[in-house]
Simulated scan of single mutants.
Amino acid sequence: MRITIGRLAELTGVPASAIRFWERHGLLPQPERQGGQRRYPPEAAERIILLRKCQQAGLTLAEIGEFQQNEPRRQAMIRVKIAEVEQRAIDLRHAQEFLEHAVQCSKPDILACPTFQRQMESWRSASPATGGTGETSTPPAQ
Rank of each mutant, 00 (worst) to 15 (best):
M1H: 10
M1S: 14
M1K: 12
M1D: 13
I3N: 04
I3A: 05
I3H: 02
T4A: 05
T4D: 03
G6Q: 05
R7Y: 09
E10P: 08
E10W: 01
L11R: 11
L11G: 05
L11T: 06
T12S: 10
G13N: 02
V14E: 06
P15N: 14
P15K: 15
S17R: 09
A18S: 12
R20A: 01
F21S: 08
F21G: 05
W22E: 06
E23P: 03
R24E: 14
L28Q: 10
P29K: 14
Q30P: 13
E32C: 07
R33V: 02
G36N: 14
Q37K: 10
Q37V: 07
R38S: 00
R39H: 05
P42E: 02
E46Y: 12
L51R: 01
R52G: 12
C54V: 08
Q55P: 10
Q55W: 04
Q55F: 07
A57S: 00
A57H: 02
A57Q: 04
G58F: 06
L59E: 01
T60M: 07
T60I: 04
L61H: 05
L61Q: 06
A62H: 10
E63I: 00
I64V: 15
G65P: 12
Q69P: 09
E71M: 11
E71P: 14
P72T: 11
R74L: 09
R74W: 04
Q75C: 11
Q75Y: 13
M77T: 08
M77F: 02
I78H: 00
I78V: 05
I78S: 02
R79N: 15
R79G: 10
K81Q: 09
K81T: 04
K81Y: 03
I82D: 00
V85Y: 00
V85F: 06
V85T: 07
V85G: 01
V85R: 00
E86Q: 05
E86K: 00
E86H: 01
A89I: 11
I90V: 09
I90D: 08
D91A: 08
L92F: 07
L92C: 09
R93L: 12
R93I: 03
A95H: 10
A95F: 03
Q96Y: 13
E97A: 13
E97D: 15
L99K: 08
L99Q: 12
E100A: 13
E100C: 08
H101G: 03
A102C: 09
C105H: 02
C105W: 02
C105S: 06
K107R: 15
I110T: 05
A112E: 15
A112L: 15
P114Y: 01
P114D: 04
P114V: 04
F116Q: 07
F116N: 06
F116L: 04
Q117N: 05
Q117D: 10
R118V: 04
S122F: 13
S122I: 06
W123D: 04
W123K: 01
R124A: 15
R124Y: 13
S125P: 08
S125Q: 14
A126Q: 01
P128H: 06
A129K: 08
A129G: 10
T130E: 12
T130N: 13
T130H: 12
G131V: 06
G132I: 07
G134H: 01
E135Q: 11
S137E: 15
S137C: 12
S137H: 13
T138S: 11
P139A: 09
P140E: 07
P140T: 07
A141N: 06
Q142F: 08
Q142T: 13
